[in-house]
């Protein structure tokens, strides 16, 4: 009897081999006139060039949005997007928000009760009441 290999579709395990960042694009919007954009305008000139150079895998777009508060919008590979309003924030605060967008998965926020999740099956197998010796009562 010939041994046949089990046919299985490979599962994506991000980070086991290569790591693909979930955030694919970040849009930055600012206003030239409004005071709430002061920090954002300063950020684009001072801290943003270094951040953008450190993340070549993310596409960045910078565009004005007159008479609106400044916004940073992250777009993810699952199709979702995550906008954060950064009005009246200092450049370093905005940098923190951009790091948050970069690290986010794009999923909806959920309450995490179990800190560890795994796609690997347990080495002990799934418990069954019909197997084993059982426990006499």
């Amino acid at each position: 009897m010939a041994v046949k290999a089990l046919q299985a579709v490979s599962q994506g395990r991000n980070g086991v081999g290569a790591f693909i960042l979930q955030c694919k694009r970040i849009d930055l919007h600012y206003c030239d006139w409004a005071g709430s954009s002061k920090g954002m305008n300063g950020f684009i000139k001072s801290l943003f060039p270094k951040f953008a150079a450190a993340h070549p895998q993310i596409e960045f777009t910078v565009s004005p949005r007159p008479a609106k508060h400044p916004v940073a919008i992250g777009h993810y590979i699952n199709g979702r997007s995550k906008p954060i309003c950064v009005r009246n924030m200092e450049p370093y605060e905005i940098l923190k928000k951009l790091e948050l967008l970069r690290d986010a998965s794009g999923e909806k926020l959920k309450k995490v009760t179990k800190p560890v999740r795994s796609v690997n099956e347990s080495v002990r197998g799934i418990w069954s009441p019909y197997h084993g010796n059982g426990m006499p009562l």
Partner: peptide
């Protein structure tokens, strides 16, 4: 305008992943 300043200073000239409108 900020866009003009960015263009004048050529801040993102060497970064292909940044687009300024």
């Amino acid at each position: 305008k900020l866009a003009e300043e960015i263009e004048n200073k050529e801040i993102f000239q060497s970064l292909p992943n940044v687009k300024v409108f």
